[in-house]
């Protein structure tokens, strides 16, 4: 026997607390759960969302503010540095373009001494051959940068003597304070420096003037390093007075030869030799006595 069921009764049983007959069967069904990986994904998403919430929007605003402050600070520093550089330029009076090129010439004391010695040797050799060549050799040996920096001008007639080594300030200070060494003067400049003597032997005079300036430079070296300069002086022949030499040039040949003999007899042999060399160059055809010929040799 069968009877038709009442749907409302079935529904009411379903809505009861136990869910009716099908509710009981449903509770016995399996209870599948989400996989662990799904759990991890969901929880990670939630954690990310929570962290995102914790970051306050003010932090982004602070980041922008910090960046702007850094830019302002950098610009301020750059402006300040620029102002200082301009002030330095105004004090020195040097335009910026000149300041950007810094000539560097590494010159050590030993190199400088060697240079001086080589110049001396070249000039001494050239003195015997051609005064003009000697002058040009000296000019070439001068440092190019210094030659540019200090234009060629007449050498001072009277050079102040170098300070004694004992009173000399420390080496670095003295170097900074000392003026540039006089450049090698060409023969034409030497002629301007000694116009009264250019009528006869201008080249000889130039050679003498150059030697005189060389001697002055040697004196500077004494000021710089007294023991070293003293050693150089002991090695080199005693310098003769070029003024005296020039005066002798104006003597008559016989008188000049007599003066040479007098110098030799007076024990001033080096001075006598220099006079004799110059005499033979000016009067190559003059017959010398045996005594003077031996002296010349």
């Amino acid at each position: 026997m069968s009877k038709r069921r009442d749907p409302d009764e079935d529904l009411q049983r379903l809505l009861d607390d136990d869910g009716g007959e099908f509710g009981a069967i449903y509770k016995r069904l399996s209870h599948p759960e989400p996989p662990r990986r799904v759990d991890r994904v969901v929880l990670a998403n939630a954690a990310r969302a929570v962290r995102g919430d914790r970051a306050p929007p003010a932090q982004r605003w602070l980041l922008g503010l910090g960046s702007a402050a850094g830019l302002v600070l950098a610009a301020g520093i750059a402006w300040q540095v620029g102002q200082q550089i301009d002030a330095q330029d105004a004090q020195t009076g040097a335009p910026r373009s000149e300041r950007t090129v810094i000539p560097v010439q590494p010159i050590t004391e030993s190199a400088r001494t060697q240079k001086t010695e080589s110049v001396e040797a070249a000039a001494a050799m050239a003195d015997q051959e051609s005064p003009a060549e000697a002058a040009s050799a000296k000019q070439e040996s001068a440092p190019p940068l210094r030659r540019k920096a200090t234009p060629a001008k007449p050498a001072p007639a009277a050079v102040p003597p170098p300070a004694p080594a004992a009173q000399a300030p420390p080496l670095l200070e003295q170097r900074a304070a000392e003026p540039e060494p006089p450049p090698a003067v060409p023969a034409a400049d030497a002629a301007q420096a000694f116009p009264q003597e250019t009528d006869n032997v201008s080249s000889e005079a130039a050679s003498g003037a150059a030697r005189e300036r060389r001697d002055h430079a040697a004196g500077k070296a004494v000021g710089l390093s007294a023991p070293k300069a003293a050693a150089e002086q002991s090695r080199a022949p005693a310098p003769s007075s070029s003024v005296k030499l020039r005066q002798n040039m104006h003597l008559a040949p016989q008188d000049w030869l007599a003066e040479i003999v007098r110098l030799k007899n007076a024990g001033r042999r080096q001075e006598a030799i220099e006079n004799l060399r110059l005499f033979r160059r000016m009067h190559p055809d003059w017959q010398l006595s045996d005594e003077l010929r031996r002296l010349a040799e």
Binding site: S2, R4, R5, I25, R28
Partner: peptide, 26 residues
């Protein structure tokens, strides 16, 4: 729905095994 016409003594929890009941409900 209109075809439902089952006797009381043939209620599913009485007739079918538990496994079958779960399977059918599924």
């Amino acid at each position: 729905f209109n075809q439902l016409d089952a006797p009381d003594d043939e209620r599913p929890d009485h007739v079918l095994s538990e496994f079958e009941q779960r399977r059918r409900l599924q």
